[in-house]
């Protein structure tokens, strides 16, 4: 069974602007996959379908065999953890501890089990020392790690990250990639940071114009310069894909 399967997904915003035109993709359990694409390709719209925030205009999304629909939102949102691009959108409670506890508390956990979830999640991202601090006193990189912890505390099966490397300094970037590589979950990482995709994800998809236009091992995708150019993706100056001709 696929961890995640999206088939024929199309969506138009109520104003008529159509963002997705029939997306097909699937993720195996434990895979780390990068979803690449230029701005306006529909990446965020796709992500918002994965945990049922948006309802497909056509097509379906299955998470671990369970179709995403209004009746199973609680279970779907436990299984799919979304980390948003701006950690300030994600963190809104007075302290880090309360923020990390928010998700599992919504799942109905209380007392020592809630406490344990918070501790484990913060330890995974190396932020256990900051539990009692207000989120807005942390650095940007720390806030992003806490944002990841708020989702990990729900023990999701799939972790979806929207532009996880944006605005990070090189050290924070490396710390985050190490955390992500050590997690034992399926990861879907939305990004246009190609080296970061290469570092973390063995497989990549390109979403462009609201459909998936390429799917394959990350080194192969990134080596196809013509494909990248066609979809407004570029490797940074001087960067060469290791092992490519």
């Amino acid at each position: 069974m696929n961890a995640l399967r999206v088939s024929g997904l199309a969506y138009a915003y109520p104003d008529g602007t159509q963002a997705l035109f029939g997306v097909d993709l699937s993720l195996e359990r434990g895979e780390r996959v990068a979803l690449l694409g230029p701005n306006g390709a529909g990446k965020t719209t796709l992500v918002l379908h994965l945990n049922g925030i948006l309802t497909p205009g056509a097509g379906q999304v299955h998470v671990g065999g369970l179709e995403v629909g209004p009746a199973r939102l609680r279970e779907i949102r436990r299984r799919v953890g979304l980390v948003f691009q701006d950690p300030d959108d994600q963190l809104f409670m007075p302290t880090v501890r309360e923020d990390v506890a928010f998700g599992p508390a919504n799942l109905g956990l209380r007392g020592s089990e809630l406490e344990r979830r918070v501790k484990v999640a913060l330890a995974k991202v190396g932020m256990a020392h900051a539990a009692d601090r207000p989120p807005h006193h942390l650095s940007f990189g720390q806030r992003r790690r806490v944002a990841v912890a708020t989702v990990l505390a729900m023990e999701p099966e799939i972790l979806v990250l929207d532009e996880p490397s944006s605005n990070l300094d090189p050290a924070s970037r490396r710390e985050l990639s190490e955390i992500l590589k050590n997690l034992d979950v399926t990861v879907l990482m939305v990004t246009h940071d190609l080296p970061y995709a290469l570092e973390i994800c063995e497989r990549s998809l390109i979403l462009s114009g609201g459909v998936v236009v390429a799917d394959g091992p990350t080194p192969e995708i990134l080596a196809d310069g013509e494909l990248l150019t066609r979809h407004r993706l570029e490797l940074p100056y001087g960067f060469a894909v290791p092992g490519a001709q």
Binding site: G8, A10, A12, F21, G22, A58, V211
Partner: peptide
Amino acid sequence: GARALARPLLLRRADG
């Protein structure tokens, strides 16, 4: 009140 303004969906293949 403007929900009636929505248009029907289009589907496209990978080549557009």
